[in-house]
């Protein structure tokens, strides 16, 4: 994969060569995909006023079932469908917990995460035991666009899941802004009382948003495990939590979330590349691994001040009486 052999003292200038940059960029786009899918889903949920901190758990559980399905059936498509289904199923659970029992969303989300973490580990140990590889997605070169030098390799030579995730950005933008469902989702996220008095069912609308959100989290998990071609305990390594942060980073807009996911993916790819190239070594490498998280926190501190964008009823359960 890497066109340069590992050497003792690589310098920064060797990172800034076209092939390395193209490669880094391409892998950044790939890294970004699970973040994008998960945070797009979380965006829809949050626009309806529901915070789901359990994204990571949903991803893990979906990832395991998708992995297991592919392992057993050899069908990647079936794996993706199962991942999506498991996500939606977890959505049903989360909707019951938050909408019917009105549990504190910050806490119940953590519960969902811990459940997903533990359950996926348990099932993996019981059903699979030692990791075995599964076929990952094939790269699909987009006709014409894929042949543009460098640009084609960066953006137009990826798996179907990458394209799907990117296409979801305009699709969800339209859904949120230009459909009756989107209007209802935004109304119950901003002012459930007003929506209710106008005849919009708050809990039904929020349920739909939760199912979309969790379904996409499930898809993110399936995409991750199949892209990597394997499964292991805590495969996501916190992707689901970063995805929640990226919703704030992206100011609750699909396009903003895309920008955040790409930035995150690129930083991750760059750091990985530097470590591989030996530009950073030892303790410095460990520090560099933290870079994406640190940068996210800094970006959030600066950007997320725009509290005006936050749905006014986020995390607030709805009930009619006082």
């Amino acid at each position: 994969m890497i066109p340069y052999k590992w050497r003792e003292h690589l310098t920064m200038s060797e990172f800034f060569t076209l092939p390395v940059l193209v490669l880094t960029f391409a892998s950044g786009v790939r890294f970004a995909t699970p973040y994008l899918l998960a945070s797009l889903g979380e965006t829809v949920g949050q626009r309806s006023g529901v915070l789901n901190l359990g994204v990571d758990g949903v991803m893990l559980l979906s990832a395991f079932f998708a992995y297991w399905t592919v392992l057993e059936t050899d069908s990647r498509l079936l794996g993706v469908v199962v991942g999506l289904g498991v996500g939606i199923l977890m959505g049903v659970v989360y909707a019951i917990v938050t909408l019917i029992f009105k549990a504190e969303q910050g806490i119940s989300g953590i519960g969902i995460f811990l459940f997903g973490l533990g359950m996926s580990e348990l099932l993996f140990l019981k059903q699979v035991g030692t990791p075995r590889g599964i076929p990952s997605f094939d790269d699909l070169k987009v006709p014409l666009l894929g042949d543009i030098p460098h640009i084609g390799d960066m953006f137009f030579n990826h798996s179907i899941v990458v394209y799907l995730a990117v296409l979801l950005v305009p699709a969800l933008t339209i859904m949120v802004n230009r459909t009756t469902l989107g209007l209802n989702i935004r109304a119950v996220g901003e002012s459930p009382e007003a929506a209710d008095s106008l005849g919009v069912s708050v809990n039904l609308t929020r349920t739909v948003a939760i199912l979309i959100g969790n379904g996409l989290a499930g898809l993110a998990g399936a995409a991750l495990t199949i892209e990597l071609g394997t499964f292991q305990n805590n495969l996501t390594n916190g992707i689901g939590f970063i995805a929640v942060a990226l919703v704030y980073f992206g100011a609750w807009r699909p396009l903003g979330v895309l920008a955040g996911s790409l930035l995150y993916g690129l930083i991750t790819a760059t750091v990985t590349q530097w470590k591989t190239l030996g530009i950073v070594t030892g303790a410095a490498a460990s520090f560099t691994t933290m870079a994406p998280a640190v940068l996210t926190v800094i970006a959030l501190a600066i950007i997320a001040r725009r509290s005006a964008d936050q749905p006014a009823a986020l995390t607030v359960p709805f009930s009619r009486d006082g």
């Binding site: 935004r186 109304a187 901003e190 002012s191 007003a194 929506a195 209710d196 008095s197 006014a312």
Partner: peptide, 8 residues
């Protein structure tokens, strides 16, 4: 509160 969504 009930009549309009302020942010809309």
């Amino acid at each position: 509160l009930h009549g309009a969504v302020a942010e809309f």
